[in-house]
Design a protein around this nucleic acid. Structure first.
Length: 512
RNA sequence: GCGGGCGUAGUUCAAUGGUAGAACCCCAGCCUUCCAAGCUGGUUACGACAGUUCGAAUCUGUUCGCCCGCUCCA
């Protein structure tokens, strides 16, 4: 499947998310603020389910990973050690003519070796060919007389002789401006530079900074991991695509510490492991891809990095990055803090700084992917009950059919697991029995009780919020068999089941 | 941040500078023995702030937000 094979438009999805209470614009009554979103009553349940599935798969179903919850504001030197204070900013410049925008560190310049008054030609890193052509065409010169210089080494007062990468005119480039992507604040009531602190731009550094304490308390042996879920903040230049790129977002990060030399096999292991998890929560193999970083795309300290990509309606985008970061982070913290962050291997009697594999996932992106994946519009034949996929862009169902909107979540992700419905509401014994069943099931799962309107309408309401199972109490329940019907969201088929067997049946379907 | 487009009930759409309407949704009541039935009633909107005008949803400016392209990224 490709991104453009979707029946979903983002508009339809955004509309449903608002109407049913998944996602709201933050502080909407004041006009909202770009890059921040709130999760409504259904969204928060869904998001908690995503995190719970991850947390369970990491810290409960395996013995070699422990959890951590570190603070959002940490000592500023953490960010010096990690390189965020120095490097987490991208100087950018614009071309006034073409309206293009470039990262200054990715632009290089061909400059005449002897003649400072000659025009200079900018080009994209590793792609000097267009600039060489312009030397011939525009300056009537010879490329051999020119030398490569980084754009950032060109003095600002020489910009009027600089020809942009995508133009033939000099003087169209603006000066590079730095964008620090970290949110800054002050610790204590006095706003002075000595009090500056940052909201964390990733949760990972909290794990590295507590590496020593965790090691000395839980007696773990390499390889082992520390997992953390939490908010992170980045002052993105331009948030876009609904919640996909937000300024406040939630991460699920694992730092898996390994013996140096096992990096490649452990990296591959975690990529495979994580793809299995995505399939389990409802993202099919056909829409998932690996984007393997190579060469310049790889950070200098990393030996491997694979992004796990999903085909969104707006394009194929990253959900998670899995990086083999060597021992860069722990080494940096050891040097900056002066505290030893070594691991003592009891078996080999060696001391070393472990290497690390970092699967780092964005919760909000996964939530958005799951919503895109789950959303479908269907047509139901009124006579036969046959379900077919609705035609793209059709406003109405064809004659003899009715439309149905479904969020076909994996049951472990669905905000509500079960809806309990009395067949009608004006017969007290039915209502009483339904309440009893509802209260029993609510002890184990998030359930929904609804007695309003016709039962068919109530089923459709549950379809639209993705509830996998509907339990209906009818007259037979109280008069004959103490059994209920269970209706499946996807097939709309019903079976009859004794109330005594209900919990086991539901558990089998909805528990992760 | 740059360029373009767009802001009217929860949603989808109306309204010539002159009383803001509809459908669906939602809520209440009646009715209802399994897939959005029906009847009655009800709540809810001109993104914000200025300006022009006797009078602004409508014209102008500013701002905020959304969408698209550039850019960027978990």
């Amino acid at each position: 499947m490709k991104a453009n094979d979707y029946e979903v438009t983002m508009d339809a999805l955004v509309s449903l998310c608002k109407r049913r209470g998944f996602i709201f614009q933050t502080s909407e009554i004041y006009g909202g603020i770009n890059g921040f979103w709130d999760y409504g009553p259904l969204g928060v349940e869904m998001k908690r389910n995503i995190k719970a599935c991850w947390w369970k798969s990491m810290t409960q179903l395996r013995e070699d990973i422990v959890g951590l919850d570190s603070s959002i504001i940490m000592h500023p030197r953490v960010w010096e050690a990690s390189g965020h204070v120095g490097n987490f900013k991208d100087p950018m410049l614009d071309c006034r003519e073409t309206k293009g925008r470039y990262r200054a560190d990715q632009i290089f310049v061909l400059k005449h070796k002897t003649d400072d008054s000659a025009l200079m030609f900018a080009y994209h890193e590793n792609a000097p060919a267009p600039a060489e052509k312009k030397i011939k065409k525009v300056a009537k010169g010879d490329a051999a007389d020119y030398a490569e210089v980084a754009l950032l080494d060109i003095p600002l007062d020489a910009y009027d002789k600089l020809v942009g990468p995508d133009t033939n005119e000099p003087g169209t480039l603006t000066e590079p401006r730095a964008f620090n992507l970290m949110f800054k604040t002050y610790v204590g009531p006095v706003e002075e530079s000595s009090n500056v602190a940052y909201l964390r731009p990733e949760t990972a550094q909290g794990i590295f900074a507590q590496f020593g304490n965790v090691c000395s308390t839980v007696r773990n042996k390499v390889p082992f991991g520390i997992a953390q879920i939490g908010k992170a903040f980045r002052n993105e230049i331009n948030p876009r695509n609904y919640t996909f790129r937000s300024r406040e977002f939630e991460q699920m990060e694992l730092e898996f510490f390994i013996k140096p030399g096992t990096d490649a096999e452990q990296h591959e292991y975690w990529v495979t492991e994580r793809l299995k998890w995505y399939e389990k929560v409802g993202l099919p193999e056909g829409r998932m891809h690996r984007d393997i970083h190579e060469g310049d795309a790889l950070a200098h300290y990393a030996s491997a990095c694979t992004d796990i990509m999903y085909d969104f309606p707006f394009g194929t985008q990253e959900l998670e990055g899995i990086a083999a970061r060597g021992n860069f982070d722990l080494t940096q913290h050891q040097e900056t803090s002066g505290k030893k962050l070594e691991y003592h291997d009891e078996e080999t009697k060696e001391r070393y700084i472990p290497h690390v594999i970092e699967p780092s996932a964005g919760v909000d992106r996964i939530a958005l992917a799951l919503l895109c994946e789950a959303y479908r519009e269907e047509w139901i034949n009124k006579e036969t009950g046959e379900i077919s996929t609705a035609e793209v862009g059709a406003k109405r169902a064809p004659e003899g059919h009715e439309a149905r909107t479904v969020l076909a979540f994996s049951p472990c992700i669905a905000p509500y697991k079960v809806a309990v419905l009395p067949l009608v509401k004006n017969k007290e014994p039915l209502v009483a029995k339904a309440r009893e069943v509802y209260e029993q099931l609510s002890k184990r799962w998030k359930c929904f009780y609804d007695q309003t309107g016709a039962v068919g309408r109530r089923y459709r309401r549950q379809d639209e919020i993705g509830t996998p199972l509907c339990v209906t109490v009818d007259f037979e329940t109280i008069e004959e068999d103490n059994a209920v019907t269970i209706r499946d969201r996807d097939t709309m088929k019903q079976i009859r089941l004794p109330i005594a067997e209900l919990e086991a049946y539901i558990s089998n379907i909805v528990d992760f």
